[in-house]
């Protein structure tokens, strides 16, 4: 049983990191795009884990109700959106992932002992008519280091 929770900023909240990345995109002289959005992604797995568990974790632990929204996706069946390219950047196997341990700790405080494994990563959204190749190039150059991270593109 595998869920992914995507945490992103509510529309009226300014995405500073996204703006900084947009500046980098322009600096890199890549074809213009509409915008870049940033967020976190948490991958939760456990044989006893339920939808209700994940819902509660998302509301009470993983998202800030004032500034963030959480999107729960079961077993990676994420509905695609056109005009948007999504990237996830994860730590490579073996590289430490401290927030993952913290999620487990937080879940136990919420009474949820069913999580067996957590993986945390960064989620990026590239909005506009951007090519897959441009997104890949940008991520490799600015967002990840392939010595310690892997990239997943939708």
């Amino acid at each position: 049983m595998n869920w992914r929770v995507f945490v992103s900023l509510k529309p009226r909240v300014i995405d500073h990191r996204g703006r900084a990345l947009e500046a980098e995109w322009r600096h890199a002289k890549l074809p213009s795009l509409d915008g870049i959005g940033t967020g976190q992604v948490y991958e939760l797995s456990g044989s006893g884990l339920s939808d209700a568990d994940v819902q509660r974790l998302t509301e009470s632990l993983l998202t800030d109700p004032i500034t963030q929204t959480g999107e729960i996706v079961y077993a990676d069946h994420r509905p695609t959106r056109s005009g948007v390219r999504r990237v996830r950047i994860w730590p490579k196997p073996g590289v430490s992932d401290p927030p993952a341990e913290t999620v487990m700790l937080g879940a136990r405080d919420l009474g949820c002992d069913n999580i067996e494994r957590v993986r945390t990563g960064f989620a990026y959204e590239f909005r506009g008519p951007v090519s897959r190749q441009d997104v890949k190039t940008f991520c490799e150059r600015y967002l990840m280091n392939d010595l310690v991270q892997t990239m997943e593109m939708e």
């Binding site: 632990l61 993983l62 800030d64 401290p98 913290t102 999620v103 700790l105 937080g106 405080d109 009474g111």
Partner: peptide, 19 residues
């Protein structure tokens, strides 16, 4: 607290609230 993981203060807040 807890490395600011997830969000600053969130995990300790959660711990205090639930325990």
């Amino acid at each position: 607290s807890y490395g600011d993981d997830i969000a600053s203060g969130k995990v300790l807040a959660n711990q205090l609230l639930n325990r």
